[in-house]
Amino acid sequence: MSTATIDAPAPVDDALKPFIVTLIVRRFNPELDDEPKWVDYDVEMFSTDRILDALHKIKWEQDGSLSFRRSCAHGICGSDAMRINGRNRLACKTLIKDLDITKPIYVEAIKGLPLEKDLIVDMDPFFESFREVQPFLIPSKKAEPGKERIQSVADRARFDDTTKCILCAACTSSCPIFWTDGQYFGPAAIVNAHRFIFDSRDDAAKVRLDILNDQEGVWRCRTTFNCTDACPRGIQVTQAIAEVKQALMRGKP
């Protein structure tokens, strides 16, 4: 054990050699453009760089007007969900080396939400759906003053997966149903309902299930698994939706 570290891998050599990557970004500035347009940029990148690094290089070295959201830059704040080569991903979690760079990389805003500028969409409709599922603990009885509630390890594990959600909208905006019907709650709202429906401390599953039984609720899901593929947190989104459907048929979690 004590010498196990000597032969640890050095960063791969490729990481030391930069190369040119072409990004084609769908630009739109409502103050100047009638229609979105695709614009090419060549940037020098390392294989371990992220798409977010490429966008920063464009913004910082070529065109300061390129607009996108970002904050933590390591996949936990959920700011930079975008469509990269046609798939929803976080720009800060997508490494150049994981893409085919013999071809240009296409980057555009996520779909289904109003486009504001370049890679920025209006997130308010997304958060409105989140709010509608009552995403907060509604306990059956008040906890004893100054006391924690008891919850078994198994009960806690029951909803662990859906607590990972960072509300980035990658799932919802990858859903073909959501694209065609903006009224559909979308996977993220259902994931957040799931997080409470299956929490043993919560007593309002019925209320949330009723909300999701609506015609814009879980039954719109056609199980295309786009959402599960898109989730940067690895949440089994489609399974969570299926569990909510089953709970609806049972009438309880």
Binding site: L137, E148, R149, S152, V153, D199
Partner: peptide
Amino acid sequence: VIDLENMGLPFNRTPEGK
């Protein structure tokens, strides 16, 4: 910490559920 638990924070639990 108790406030947060009461508000719904999913803390990891001990075998006794604390």
